[in-house]
Amino acid sequence: MSSPNQYFVLIVPACAALLGMAMIYCWSRLRDHRYLLWIASGYISTAIPLGIHSLMPNEHLARWTVPLSTMYLFGVWALAHGVAVRFGGRSAPRLAGTIMFITLGGLFYFSQIHDDLWLRLQILGWSLALLIALPAKSILLSSRTRPIPLAALLRASYLTTLLYAFFRALALTTLIPREIQPDLTQSGFWLLMLAANMFISIWIALAILTSTAMSIVQTLDHERSQDPLTRLLNRRAFFEQVKKRLERYGHTGWAVIICDLDHFKIVNDTWGHAAGDRALKEFGALLARTVRQDDLAARFGGEEFVLLIRSTSLHTAVLVAERLRSSAMNLHIPATAHTLTASFGVVQLNSNGDINQAIEQADRLLYEAKHAGRNKVIWKAS
């Protein structure tokens, strides 16, 4: 084997192994992204036999067929399974196990009992293609409530890998002569296959790692914008979203509702802060169920909540507040005998309305409701 070719065939599995180790490192820092560990296992499990095969002469291949093919089969399935897990799907592990068992049985026969390298290549090539195809439905047709960053790129990467696997199997069937020459692993076909493997491996790795990084950024941004207890927007995120809504839709057709739980200190003092947290969670969930797609709900702190809702009239906004007030009284707070009530201040924005002034005005109306006996809704146009 010439020196340049020898270096090249070692570069490809070395790159795959390094990509696998990089994903293991990422997984060690991001344990909830378990698909990274599967994909890393796939890279490393295929890199080892690929490197050995690339340096091994044909006359030694039969002896190592079963152990090396086992690593190939597991590695390819792990890679496909990892991508499927990324999309919230699965890759039929029982069917995969059946394919592996039948494949290894055939490889054992044609290596230890009746040595036939050409048939071994066919069996392994088509089996690898089938393993990659197992999660095709869950990957290509998956739909999730929370979209995956770069989902289209990930699907394209998987589809490219799938097509390449079947093309490689077909090429092994049509381009490799029945009587294989001793220098197969040094041939131009083998080098071309290694180059394609390296290109696809790097492409998939970059797509997976980029998608993961974007998921982390989205999660951090989501957590930075969320109240940790109620999962509603926090004050900072509320004003950011309000600005976007008003810039997009204008100032008209909006109403601000401020609400505050009545006698909330009694809940904490009588039944403990755990009961108080539960009350806040239940009320926050009520607000989340009430708001629509363009509406906003936020916890400003303590037991105070603010809503910006699409409302064509003050009357409509008041009806929403009244419905919330009535629903709050029906909330069940475990381990307490407390009936939850809330007071509301409602302001309708006009074309010249300022959101900060509207919130201040709604806040004053809220305290009027408190002084008027609580569990009331008081309103006024901005």
Rank of each mutant, 00 (worst) to 15 (best):
W27T: 00
L30M: 12
L30Q: 09
Y35H: 13
S45V: 00
T46Q: 14
T46D: 12
L50W: 11
G51R: 05
I52Y: 03
M56N: 11
H60P: 00
R63A: 15
T70M: 11
F74T: 10
V76L: 09
V83I: 15
V85E: 15
P93H: 01
L107Q: 09
L107I: 07
L107V: 06
D115F: 10
R120H: 08
L128A: 11
A129P: 05
L141N: 13
L141Q: 14
S143N: 08
P147N: 10
S157T: 13
L159G: 14
L162T: 01
L175Y: 07
T185E: 10
S187C: 05
F189Y: 15
S201T: 10
L206H: 09
A207I: 08
S211G: 10
M214W: 12
M214V: 14
R224S: 14
Q226N: 10
L229F: 11
R235I: 09
A237L: 02
F239K: 04
F239G: 01
Q241L: 03
K244N: 09
R248N: 11
I257M: 05
C259R: 00
F264E: 00
V267W: 03
D269P: 06
T270L: 13
D295Y: 12
L319D: 14
R323T: 13
L331K: 10
A335Q: 07
A335W: 00
H338A: 10
L340N: 08
E360T: 14
L365K: 12
E368T: 09
G373E: 05
G373W: 02
N375R: 05
K380R: 14
K380W: 00
